[in-house]
Simulated assay, not measured.
Amino acid sequence: SKFLNICFMSQGKAGDLAGVADDNDGAGLPLFTFVDENIFKKETFLAFISLLDNYESDTGEPEIVTPEEELENHKFLDSVIKTPTMKMAHRYLVRKHLSPEDAADFKKQLYHIWFELYARRGSSKPDSSGFEHVFVGETRGGRTVIGFHNWIQLYLQEKLGHIDYKGYRVNANSPQPDENKHILALQFSWKNGIKPKGSIFIGVSPEFEFALYTLCFLTSPNERVKVSFSVYELEIVCHHYNQKHIGTTYPVLVKYLNA
C-alpha cells in the first residue's frame, strides 16, 4: 500500500506514565504538522471517517446502533470490498477456505467480525466491537485509553484538540521515528484518559489496515503474525473475542531494516 504525504514531529521520548500528569509530556507540540486532506475525499476514507462518531467511548456504556449508523457500516464495507487491496485479501482467504467466494457472503463475514457488538470485560451489555476498539478507541474507568490504533482518528482528534501527544516510544529495534517511517509507537491522552503505549501505522489507507487485520484474524487468531514489507519487519498482534470477533489488533515494529 502506498504511503500518503504526511509530516509529523516525533519530538521527545515518552515517559512511563502512571497517570496523566502534564510534567511527563515529552512533546510540547502536536504530532501532525501536515496532512494532505484531499485524500479524505476518496470513497473509502469518506466512508471510514463517517463511522468515527458512531460510538460511546466508555466501556460499560451500551452501544445503540441506529439504522443510519448501520447504513454507514454497510457503505464502508461496500467501498472497501471494491478496492484492489481487499479483493486480493479476499482471493487469498477463499483459496485457504477461510472466507466464502460470494462477495455478499464475504461482506456478511466482515460485518460479523468487525461490527457485531459484544460485551467487553466488566460489562454485562454489548458495549464494544472490533471496529470501535481498533479504529476509534475506547476508555476504561475514565482513566485508561484502550484500542485506538488508527492514524486518521488520531489526526482528526488531535485537530479537534482532544488529543495530547506525549511522545514516542522506542526499543533496540525501533529507532527514533521520523516522517520517513510509517509505524509509530507512542503515548497520548484522550478524553481525560491516558494511552501509556500504543502502536499505529502512519499514512496508510483504511482498506490496507482492514484487509491486513482481517487476514491476520482469520489465518492466525490470537497469535502474533510476522509480516514483512518495504523496509519493515512487523508483528501484527491479533486477539479474538470468543473466537468470533476481533478483540484487538495492532502492528508492532520488530525491525526497521534501514536503521
Rank of each mutant, 00 (worst) to 15 (best):
S1N: 07
F3G: 07
F3Y: 12
M9N: 13
D16C: 09
L17I: 08
A18K: 15
G19V: 03
A27E: 01
A27F: 00
G28L: 14
L29D: 15
P30Q: 11
P30W: 07
F32N: 00
T33S: 15
V35W: 01
D36V: 07
I39G: 02
F40K: 06
K41M: 13
E43Y: 08
F45S: 02
A47G: 05
F48E: 01
F48L: 08
I49E: 00
N54L: 12
E56D: 10
E56F: 12
E56P: 02
S57T: 15
T59Q: 06
G60R: 01
G60E: 07
G60A: 04
E61H: 14
E61D: 13
E63R: 04
E63W: 06
V65T: 11
L71H: 13
H74Q: 15
L77S: 00
D78K: 10
T83I: 11
T85L: 11
M86P: 02
K87G: 12
L98T: 07
L98Q: 06
E101A: 14
D102A: 12
A103T: 13
A104M: 06
D105C: 12
F106W: 12
K108A: 08
K108P: 03
L110C: 08
L110R: 04
F115D: 04
F115G: 01
Y118S: 05
R121M: 07
G122S: 03
G122T: 00
S123F: 04
S123T: 09
P126D: 10
P126Q: 11
D127P: 00
F131L: 02
T144I: 09
V145C: 03
H149C: 05
N150D: 15
L154A: 05
L156N: 06
Q157A: 14
L160S: 12
I163D: 00
K166T: 03
G167F: 00
G167H: 02
D178H: 13
K181L: 13
L184K: 02
Q187F: 02
F188I: 08
N192C: 10
I194Q: 02
G198L: 02
S199V: 04
G203M: 06
S205P: 03
P206I: 03
F208R: 04
F210G: 04
F210Q: 05
A211H: 00
Y213H: 10
C216A: 08
C216H: 04
P221C: 04
P221W: 01
E223D: 13
K226F: 14
K226S: 15
V227K: 10
V227A: 07
Y232N: 00
E233Q: 11
Y241T: 06
Q243S: 14
K244S: 14
H245S: 10
H245Q: 12
I246C: 03
I246V: 15
T249W: 01
P251G: 09
V254F: 03
N258G: 10
